[in-house]
């Protein structure tokens, strides 16, 4: 749907809902989603990165290979090895992982939206 050639199916902001567990505080995951929705940025919202890893979803390789990707999920060590076990190792230089289990919604959302705005100069 893009005329620029960059696939709109692969925005570089990724939000993990952790939909099947309660380990990410609801307030934080809702707060981040709300802020992204309000900011009007393009982003990819996935129900559960763990499930995608088990399924070896090809989208993980797209994310891992993307430039300036920011993922809002949980502990970076867990997310990194989830990608790796799906055959899509993350390049630490190009992918930033934000931890919604430890950080506030405001901090995660600000980091994502700021990055996006910065990246679209």
């Amino acid at each position: 749907m893009s005329e620029t050639g960059s696939s709109p199916a692969a925005p570089n902001l990724v939000y993990c809902r952790c939909a099947y567990a309660r380990v990410v505080p609801r307030k934080v995951k809702d707060g981040v989603l709300e802020a992204l929705a309000d900011a009007g940025v393009d982003f990819d919202a996935v129900p559960d990165l763990c499930e995608m890893s088990a399924r070896k979803d090809p989208r993980l390789a797209e994310i891992a290979g993307g430039k300036d990707v920011t993922i809002a999920a949980c502990y970076p060590r867990a997310v990194r090895w989830l990608f790796s076990s799906a055959g899509a190792p993350i390049d630490k230089e190009r992918v930033t992982i934000l931890n919604m289990r430890e950080e506030t919604a405001e901090a995660v959302a600000a980091a994502m939206v700021d990055r996006k705005n910065g990246g679209e100069r």
Partner: peptide, 15 residues
């Protein structure tokens, strides 16, 4: 998302 669907928000381009 709660129903388990992956959703990509696309704000530009051509349908």
């Amino acid at each position: 998302l709660e129903k388990g669907y992956r959703v990509t928000r696309i704000g530009s381009g051509d349908a």
